[in-house]
Simulated scan of single mutants.
Amino acid sequence: MDYQEHINKDVRLIILKALYSQDDYSLNSSILQTLLENYGHTESRDYVHNQLRWMERNVQAVKLTQAGTVLVATLTSAGRDHVERRARLEGIKRPSPEV
Score class of each variant (00 low, 15 high):
Tyr20Ala: 06
Leu16Tyr: 06
Ala67Val: 05
Ser21His: 03
Ile15Trp: 01
Pro95Arg: 10
Val99Arg: 05
Gln66Lys: 13
Ser96Asn: 06
Lys17Tyr: 01
Trp54Asn: 11
Glu98Arg: 12
Asn28Thr: 03
Lys17His: 07
Gln4Asp: 10
Gln51Gly: 00
Gln4Met: 06
Val99Tyr: 13
Leu16Thr: 09
Lys93Val: 02
Val70Ser: 14
Tyr47Leu: 07
Thr76Ala: 07
Lys9Glu: 15
Asp2Lys: 15
His6Gln: 13
Asp24Trp: 04
Arg85Tyr: 09
Leu89Pro: 01
Ile7Arg: 15
Arg12Gln: 07
Glu98Met: 11
Arg12Val: 08
Pro97Gln: 10
Asn50Ile: 02
Glu37Asn: 10
Gln60Met: 07
Val62Phe: 11
Val72Arg: 15
Ile14Phe: 07
Ile15His: 08
His41Thr: 10
Asn50Phe: 09
Thr74Tyr: 10
Leu35Phe: 13
Asn8Pro: 00
Asp46His: 05
Asn8Arg: 10
Lys63Cys: 06
Lys93Tyr: 09
Ile15Asp: 14
Thr34Asp: 14
Thr65Ser: 10
Asn38Asp: 11
His49Cys: 11
Glu56Pro: 00
Ser77Met: 05
Leu64Lys: 06
Glu98Lys: 15
Glu37His: 03
Gln22Ala: 14
Lys9Tyr: 01
Gln51Phe: 04
Ser96Val: 10
Ile31Val: 11
Glu84Pro: 04
His6Lys: 09
Leu89Trp: 00
Val62Asn: 15
Thr74Cys: 08
Val59Lys: 06
Glu98Tyr: 05
Ile92Gln: 03
Gln51Asn: 14
Ser26Arg: 15
Ile31Tyr: 03
Lys17Phe: 02
Ala18Thr: 11
Asn38Cys: 10
Ser77Arg: 08
His41Ser: 05
Tyr47Gln: 12
Asp24Thr: 13
Glu37Met: 10
Gln66Cys: 04
Ala78Gly: 04
Gly91Asp: 02
Gln22Asn: 04
Met55Leu: 10
Ile15Lys: 03
Asp46Lys: 09
Tyr3Val: 11
Ser21Cys: 00
Tyr3Leu: 12
Ala78Ile: 03
Glu37Pro: 00
Ser77Leu: 13
Val59Trp: 03
Thr65Gly: 01
Gln4Val: 08
Leu27Ile: 05
Asp2Val: 05
Leu27Asn: 04
Leu27Glu: 11
Glu84Val: 15
Lys63Pro: 00
Ile14Asp: 01
